[in-house]
Every structure is written in structure tokens, then in C-alpha cells.
Amino acid sequence: MRTQLQIDAPPGPAAPPVPEKSRLPSLTGLRWIGAMLVFGFHVGTMGIMADEGPRTLISRVFGMGLSGVQFFYILSGFVLVWSFRPGEKRMTFYRRRIVKILPNHAVLWLAVILLVGVWWGDPVNPVVAVVNLFLVQAWFPANGWFYSINTVSWSLSCELFFYLCLPLVLPLIRRLPAWALYAVAVALPLLMLVAIWPGQLLVPESWRWWFTQVFPVVRSLEFWLGVVAAELSLRSRWRGPGLPVSLGVFAAAWVVCSNEWVPAVMWPTVLAVAYIVVIAAAARADVENLWSPFRNRPLRWLGEVSFAFYMVHVFVVTGVLRAVGQTHGYSGWAGLAASLGLFGLCLGSAALLYRYVEQPMVRLLGPRRPRYLRPSRAS
């Protein structure tokens, strides 16, 4: 029996019954794992380490860390459907999502403009800057547009597109029978493979990286995979393995894709399957109070600040390296020490951004929580 009832909610699309334990702390903890995959990848590509040996090791471990963004997209689709409020007005949903991402984005946008454009005097294209500020840069395939200002904000441009689409598509998804949802869940990873090859052959060669890695329509395939899996989970129709086996599936997928004999075009499809299996299993573990290594308090806090961490890490690392004149990285143990020091600086900056920007702005600009009435004992 529910402990609270919502009132004054306008009619909306029918939704499946939500399991009693609707909060998913394990998925919050998993957000940090995704952030670390991306950070590890950038440690190997942003010139922190000068020696070939350490860079090769990092590349071996985190060579597919860029797929952490893929993990975030799948997780985002799952969480948004799981937490979707039946009867919520469309504009209220949009407002809740935009105030979650826009303040952090605006702060980092301004910081980059002031540091790079004003302090260091690098040229900044004003049109590109405006396009970036309004988070539409991922729709522009030209170099210097989609990776601009705070370069990681390209992913927010995709997320904004997903947010706009979800309330329009979710009523249709919730009318689909379970067999159709399973068909979609199988088709989406295959469509990812088709989009990468031969789909990229349909666009000019100079646009192929943008088409496969940035284009919001292509990247939305990952988001919709999370959406469909969440809908099946809400209906108690998801039939994936438990969390221990799912983690084994992910580890095996990571090892297999790390081998050179596996074509790179296969990575997104294989990892998408591994990611959604883990996400759905972690959600089930929370609902059924099963074992999960991701719901402890430190990891949940790290998950809460993971978005801020993702937003600051490239800006902090590149800014510090340029400020101290180490554009070619550090040699020997100094490279490892610098990586750990920059990690700590990024985490500290993320904690400040989360505490003094993200949380206050969500409280100030976000919609009020719906009013609730506590039912009588007779209910």
C-alpha cells in the first residue's frame, strides 16, 4: 500500500505500476563509474603523461573509456522513465531537466570564455560561442563547432534533444505490448552498428566522426535503449541476469572489445548490451533489496557530483597544464603524481560546483514538488 497520494495532477498517459522501492541508489553510484571511464580515457589523451609506457598502459585499461558517454545516455533514458511522473505537464518536465544541466553549463561556458578568450587572448568565434551556450552545437558537423568552448558540453546538446523528445514518445512506448518492447530492445543495438557502418558512408568523410560520435539522432539510439529497458523493468517483464552475472558480462565484454582483433565498429553494440544488462540488474537489486556494491554512501555522493565532475574535468586539466607550461606532460612517476593531483583538483572543483551552483539553482529555478496528502488508515 502506498504511503502517500498525489493530488491536483492533470490526467496523463497510462503508466505501469511503479515498484514500491522507486529510488535507485545503485544507479546513482553507477554514474560515478561512467564518469571515471571518461576521465581515464582523457588521462591517456590530454598529455598528462609524457612517457610512452604509462600512456600505453592507461590506453589499454581506458581505451574504450569514451563509451562512458554511451553509458550515461543509456542510464539517462532508464532513470528518466523510471522517475517519470504520470500527469506531469510537459513544460514542467522540461523545466526540471533544463535547470539540472544549464547552470553548470553556463558557469563553465563563462569560465572558458574568461580564461581562454580574455586572459589568454585566444580567438573565440562569437557565433560558435552563442551556438554552444544554447546547446545546439551537436547539430553542426563542421570542425570547431561541436567540440567548442567547454568541449564536453557537446553531450549536453544531445541530452537536451533527448529531453525534448521523451514526453512526446513515452505515451506511445507505454502502449506497446511487451513483445514489441523486446523487439525494439534487440533492434536498437543493431541499429547502432548500422549507423557506424555502413551508415557513416552516407555522409562526407570529414563528417563521419561527427555522424557516429556526436550527431544527436544517432546517439539517441543509446538513450532509447535505456527507455525501453526501464519500461520493461517497470512492468516486471525484464528478464536479464542478476547483478553478479551482469557484472561478469560487462567485464567479459570489456576484455573482448579491448582486443585488437575485434573491429572498433562492434564496440558500441557490444558495450551497449553490457551496459543495459548492468543498469537493469542494479535497478532490480535496489527494488528487491539484493546485493549491490554501488549503493554505499561514498559512492552515492560521488555519483551525485559526477555531472559536475564531468563538466569541469577537461577545463581543469587543460587549464592547469597550460598554466604551468607542461603542454607535453610529465615524465616518470611525476606523470602519475600529476594525474592523481589533477584528479583531486577536478573532484574538489566538482564538489564546489555541485554545492554552490547545481543544488542551489535546482532549488531556486526548478518547479515546486507536487503536494501530497497522507492517506487515512482506512485506505
Rank of each mutant, 00 (worst) to 15 (best):
A15N: 14
F162H: 01
P54S: 13
E304I: 08
V262G: 08
W154T: 00
V312S: 10
D8G: 11
G303N: 09
V169D: 05
L156P: 08
W119C: 09
V312M: 03
W145S: 01
W333E: 06
A282V: 03
P13G: 10
F162I: 06
L373Y: 00
I101Y: 01
M266N: 14
L172Q: 14
M1T: 09
V324G: 12
V112K: 03
G344H: 01
A111Y: 06
G12Y: 03
W179T: 13
S76M: 12
L170P: 14
F84E: 00
G329E: 14
K89P: 00
C158G: 02
I98P: 01
L30K: 06
F309Y: 05
S236E: 14
R368Q: 14
V277K: 03
P298A: 07
E231F: 00
W224K: 09
D51Q: 00
L201G: 14
V203N: 06
E358F: 09
A229G: 12
F307E: 13
H42R: 09
Y73N: 12
E159H: 11
G319V: 04
M36F: 07
L114E: 07
L110V: 14
N125T: 02
G226S: 06
S206P: 02
R295M: 05
R97S: 01
F307S: 12
Y354T: 04
R175N: 12
T45Y: 07
G40D: 10
L5T: 13
W145N: 03
R377D: 13
L336N: 01
S331W: 11
T269N: 00
S157K: 06
S26R: 07
A106T: 15
P11K: 04
E304N: 14
L115W: 15
G29W: 00
L176K: 10
L24H: 06
A323G: 11
R322E: 14
L172T: 09
P54W: 09
W254P: 05
Q70A: 13
V131Y: 03
F140W: 11
S76L: 09
R322F: 15
P16V: 14
N132F: 08
A334K: 10
R55K: 10
V277R: 02
N143D: 12
P167H: 09
S233Y: 02
L234K: 10
Y330T: 04
W139M: 05
S76N: 12
V124R: 15
V203H: 07
L247S: 08
Y310M: 12
L108E: 15
V184Q: 04
M36D: 03
R368K: 15
R297I: 06
P126Y: 13
V265P: 03
W82D: 00
V169S: 02
G199R: 11
W207V: 04
V61E: 07
D8S: 13
N296I: 08
W32R: 07
